[in-house]
């Protein structure tokens, strides 16, 4: 499955109360990747997802699925998608097996198919014993699991998870991560929106950061991080490379020392010089700022000035792609 936004915009309200939720956003994402839509609260992530699912229609721009314009309006598209909304709930007064069968039937599955898909999922998520219980009797963690199962019961080609980790307990966070990776490895496209940056680094292959409805960063996660980093290497905290020939400057961070190298110098040079100087190296990595820092500096600078000019770093990424 492959999706693309092409200059999509969407605003709500009118006059003074008009809010441009999504502003001329373009991107592409294809199967076999985990695509992260990042941004602070109110950035427009949920609105984008709702447009993808044809809950809202864009004011302008186009949405393609598998190269087909407005392909997302077809029932066949819906049948191939799993959706875990940000605000998620379940029928409280119905039995769990009933809910699973109802959702499965809406997904176009017959009872046998539902049963064969359901059992391994239930076993894996430790829900088999609860099958005959009412949803309202489940604990919060359990009902989160059930929602996750329900979203993928029809073996979708694409997973759309909106803030999947918010409100999840650590066990379920792990389960969701596994589920996401597993689907990615099976060639499915996973789109997840989040404002939790740690999860992005752990999961996403490609990211798009939006702020005030505009795209400010976009590309492969490592590329984005590299392009937004001005130091070339990092070493463990108790190792200070200051004074080495290839080093210009060292900046101390919380758990690492970031190293700026002279023009033309490489990590190999640093490694050699560190060894020669017998500095206590236990860790030496390519310079890459955590996405959280990038997020804050990009979102902050975008919020400072006008939202229109993309930041220097963002520009760099755009060009590098």
């Amino acid at each position: 499955m492959q999706i693309a936004f092409d200059g999509v915009s969407k605003s709500f309200g009118s006059g003074a109360r008009r809010v441009v939720a999504v502003n001329d956003v373009s991107f592409e994402a294809a199967g076999g990747t985990v695509f992260g839509i990042l941004g602070p609260n109110g950035a427009g992530k949920t609105t984008m997802i709702r447009m993808l699912l044809d809950v809202f229609r864009p004011d302008s721009g186009r949405i393609h699925t598998d190269g087909v314009v407005n392909g997302n309006r077809e029932l066949s598209f819906r049948q191939r998608v799993a959706y875990l909304p940000e605000e998620r709930g379940l029928y409280q007064k119905r039995k769990i097996s009933d809910v699973i069968h109802y959702i499965g039937a809406l997904r176009g599955m017959d009872r046998d198919l539902i049963r064969t898909r359901m059992m391994p999922l239930l076993e894996r998520f430790d829900l088999v014993d609860s099958l005959k219980k009412k949803v309202s009797t489940l604990s919060k963690g359990m009902s989160q699991k059930l929602q996750i199962i329900l979203s993928v019961i029809h073996d979708p080609d694409m997973l759309i998870f909106d803030e999947p980790f918010s409100g999840l307990d650590p066990v379920n966070v792990r389960l969701v991560r596994e589920l996401v990776r597993e689907h990615r490895d099976r060639g499915k496209l996973v789109c997840l929106s989040t404002h939790m940056m740690a999860e992005v680094e752990a999961l996403c292959d490609r990211v798009m950061m939006i702020d005030h409805g505009r795209r400010v960063l976009y590309g492969a996660l490592d590329e984005v991080r590299r392009a937004n980093t001005d130091f070339q290497a990092s070493v463990n905290k108790d190792c200070d490379p200051t004074g080495l020939p290839c080093v210009v400057r060292v900046v101390k961070d919380v758990d690492l020392n970031h190293v700026y190298l002279k023009d033309g110098a490489t990590i190999n040079d640093l490694m050699r010089e560190l060894a020669a100087a017998k500095r206590p190296v236990r860790r030496l990595v390519e310079g890459m700022r955590p996405i959280e820092d990038i997020f804050i500096s990009v979102a902050g600078s975008a919020a400072d000035g006008d939202a229109t000019p993309p930041t220097k770093q963002a520009d760099a990424v755009e060009r590098s792609l």
Binding site: L53, V55, L75, R78, Q79, V81, Y83, L84, P85, E87, R88, G89, L90, Y91, Q92, K93, I103, L106, R107, L150, S151, I160
Partner: peptide, 17 residues
């Protein structure tokens, strides 16, 4: 009201018209 209160609508919207 059941679906509104339980916030099931958004999932349903994504499956059926």
């Amino acid at each position: 009201a059941e679906e509104k209160e339980n916030k099931v609508f958004e999932v349903l919207f994504s499956m059926v018209r």
